[in-house]
């Protein structure tokens, strides 16, 4: 599903050029759950943003679902993103002025899904995340865990090919964090491909494969035996 070859990303300020990603070559197959780990500033989030088509690499190749997308323009990337990619953020990134229902509905709206179908799908997604009873609430009326479940519902509602999660438990206590990880695992088990950036060894153990980044380079890749065995 994802194949990068010698992916580089550099940031340039007036005097300094920082290489955030240095020749990263990564292959993620369909229905894989990959965790990207590494210390602060190692380039994990930069990699995730590029893989999520939120950002462009400086050089190198990125093939997504058979398309070379490294040089795509913003509008081309938007088109691919729509419906194919779901995002989960550390800080949930829900829109305060929208209700839980409307937040989850948002991707379907842009996909021009008919209203009645939208309603069914949103309620179904919320039900799955065990948050259906909160559909009419606004994000700030929910706990952090509930907010992240709404964010996950929003990420999965268009049935994306790939779910990208950036520190999804970073702002949660361990109980809520575990719930979120269990949800992601369920999605993975149902066939989703998941890429997750995390600091947490505990969260990484939910993944199928762990990629370790250091100074913008992949230093180790390991298959999570426990996870594989669990399967």
């Amino acid at each position: 599903m994802i194949k990068t070859t010698n992916l580089c990303k550099s940031f340039r300020t007036e005097e300094v050029e920082t290489l955030a990603l240095n020749k990263v070559s990564l292959h993620v197959r369909e229905n894989e759950f990959v965790a990207i780990m590494g210390p602060s500033g190692c380039g994990k989030s930069t990699l995730l943003n590029i893989l999520g088509l939120l950002d462009r690499p400086t050089s190198g190749s990125y093939v997504f679902a058979g398309h070379e997308v490294a040089k795509f323009t913003e509008s081309q990337r938007t088109r691919i993103r729509k419906g194919n990619l779901g995002f989960v953020f550390q800080s949930f990134n829900l829109i305060d002025t929208l209700t839980v229902f409307e937040n989850v509905e948002l991707p379907l709206l842009y996909l021009k899904v008919p209203k009645s179908e939208r309603k069914d799908r949103v309620m179904e997604a919320l039900g799955r995340m065990k948050i259906g009873h909160r559909a009419k609430h606004f994000p700030q009326q929910l706990s952090g865990g509930q907010q992240q479940r709404v964010a996950i519902a929003r990420a999965v509602i268009p049935n994306p090919k790939l779910i990208l999660a950036d520190e999804p438990t970073g702002n949660l206590d361990s109980k809520n964090g575990n719930e979120v990880m269990n949800l992601l695992t369920e999605l993975y088990q149902e066939g989703a491909t998941i890429l997750m950036v995390t600091h947490s060894d505990h969260d990484a153990q939910f993944a199928h494969r762990i990629v370790n980044l250091f100074d913008g380079q992949i230093v180790t890749e390991s298959v999570n035996r426990e996870m594989t065995t669990r399967e």
């Binding site: 509008s75 995002f87 829109i95 948002l106 991707p107 842009y110 929003r154």
Partner: peptide, 16 residues
Amino acid sequence: AREVGIKKVVGAKRYT
């Protein structure tokens, strides 16, 4: 800004 960011992430075009 955040609203704009999220809407764009989930597929909103600029003209929308």
